[in-house]
């Protein structure tokens, strides 16, 4: 069974982004970029399924600028077999990404597509569900456990009150939550080996998709800063302030 994993190149989770002076966008000119953490979990899950003999080949796909090749190489160093870059300088919103991924899925015919539940830059949490809808496939979002059997996958999902388990007929979409697994550290020999793995390139035009954004960003701004309050010296002072000053007790 072939698995396809989508990975996004995002601003590293340790970087605190700044807004450009004119408020037009965030300034990501010279910041560290990394694979979206949820996508790392998606790659790790596919690799574990391959190691368990459930998956025979892992195709990893990224969409965006040329530097996404680095993200694909990281995924291949983790264990993906080959990469596809849908190269474009155009900004991509989730609906466009889902349409592009559908075109790739139509060609590659995987039985399982694994994506991160959300990217930590736009925090949209849409692409996996949109791809599932466009393909007419079932979905297991926010997965904390994935069990693949012959023609189905059981997905345990993190929901607001606890956990929910659903059974999905393959082919299916899975989106990963934090506790699905802990991604491995990539070893140097694997990084070297990943450089030799096949990496194909295509474009939105080749795939017949118009990726034009539907939402226009009018402005970006930093939220009102919360200022530090006071340090209290004792529990008695704390309770007194909560009762008399903040009036929340």
């Amino acid at each position: 069974m072939k698995a396809l994993v989508a990975v996004k190149r995002v601003v590293d989770y340790n970087v605190k982004v700044r807004v450009k002076a004119d408020g037009s966008d965030v300034d990501i000119g010279n910041v560290k970029m990394s694979m979206n953490p949820f996508d790392e979990i998606a790659v790790e899950e596919a690799v574990r399924l391959k190691e368990a003999g459930k998956v025979s080949e892992i195709v990893v796909v990224s969409l965006g600028v040329k530097q996404c090749e680095e993200t694909l190489r990281t995924a291949m160093a983790m264990g993906a077999d080959r990469g596809i870059l849908v190269e474009t300088e155009a900004p991509l919103q989730p609906l466009a990404v889902a349409k592009l991924l559908k075109a790739v899925v139509d060609k590659e015919q995987p039985q399982l597509v694994i994506l991160g539940k959300q990217a930590i830059d736009d925090d949209a949490n849409q692409t996996g569900q949109m791809l599932a809808a466009l393909l007419g496939w079932p979905q297991g979002t926010f997965a904390s456990k994935v069990v693949v059997a012959d023609s189905k996958v059981d997905v345990t999902r993190e929901i607001d009150g606890g956990l929910e388990t659903v059974a999905l007929k393959l082919p299916a979409i899975v989106t990963t939550d934090l506790r699905l697994n802990e991604p491995r550290y990539v070893k140097l020999p694997n990084i070297m080996a990943a450089k030799k793995k096949p990496l194909d390139k295509t474009t939105p035009a080749d795939l017949g998709v118009d990726p034009a954004p539907r939402l226009t960003v009018l402005k970006v701004a930093e939220p009102a800063k919360r200022s530090a309050g006071v340090k209290v010296a004792s529990v008695q002072e704390l309770v007194a302030k909560l009762k008399n000053e903040a009036k929340v007790l």
Binding site: Q93, P94, P213, L218, K219, A221, P223
Partner: peptide, 29 residues
């Protein structure tokens, strides 16, 4: 498009939503 997680309504087609873990608020139309 879906407009995720709005925190304010500017008008019938323009909304504010947090990005980058709430460190930035984007106004989108």
């Amino acid at each position: 498009a879906q407009i995720s997680d709005i925190v304010a309504v500017e008008s019938a087609d323009t909304f504010v939503r947090p990005i980058y873990a709430g460190n930035v608020l984007a106004t989108v139309k």
